[in-house]
Amino acid sequence: MSPTESELLFTSHHPLLFSLAYRMLGSVQDTEDLLQNVYITFSETETGDIQNKKAYLCKMVTNRCIDRLKSASKKREQYTGTWLPEPLITENRPNGDPAGHIFLKESVSMAYLLLLQQLSETERAVFILKEVLQYSYEEIAEIVGKSSTNCRQIFSRAKRSIVPPKEEPQMTEKGKWLAEQFFGALASGDTSKMLSLLSADASLLTDGGGKVKAAIFPILGAERIVRFYMGILSKFPQDMTYSITYVNGDPGLILYAGKHAYAVLSLHIEDNKIKTIYSVLNPEKLTHIT
Rank of each mutant, 00 (worst) to 15 (best):
E44D: 15
E44L: 13
T45D: 06
E46L: 14
E46Y: 12
E46V: 15
G48H: 12
D49K: 12
I50G: 08
Q51M: 14
Q51S: 13
N52Q: 13
K53Q: 14
K54N: 01
L57Y: 05
C58R: 11
K59R: 14
K59H: 11
K59A: 11
M60G: 15
V61Q: 12
T62V: 14
N63W: 14
N63P: 04
R64H: 09
I66L: 05
D67G: 05
D67M: 05
D67W: 08
R68S: 09
R68C: 00
K75T: 07
E77M: 08
Q78G: 02
T82M: 05
W83R: 10
P85C: 06
E86P: 07
P87N: 05
P87G: 03
P87Q: 02
P87R: 03
L88P: 00
T90A: 10
T90D: 13
T90E: 11
R93D: 05
R93Y: 08
N95S: 07
G96H: 11
G100E: 10
H101Q: 15
H101A: 15
H101L: 13
S107L: 03
S107F: 02
M110V: 15
Y112G: 00
L114P: 01
L114Y: 00
L116M: 07
L119Y: 00
A125T: 05
A125S: 11
V126M: 06
V126D: 10
L129D: 13
K130Q: 12
K130G: 02
E131I: 00
E131G: 02
E131D: 14
V132P: 01
V132L: 07
Y137V: 02
Y137D: 08
E139N: 06
A141N: 04
E142Q: 15
E142D: 15
I143C: 04
V144Q: 08
S148K: 11
S148A: 15
N150G: 08
Q153G: 07
Q153D: 14
I154E: 10
F155R: 07
F155I: 08
S156C: 03
S156H: 13
S156K: 13
S156R: 10
S156E: 13
R157V: 13
A158K: 07
I162R: 03
V163C: 12
P165E: 09
K166C: 03
E167K: 04
P169S: 04
P169I: 01
Q170F: 07
M171N: 14
T172V: 00
T172G: 04
K174C: 00
G175A: 02
K176V: 01
L178P: 03
L178F: 01
E180N: 12
F182W: 15
F182I: 08
F182Y: 15
G184D: 00
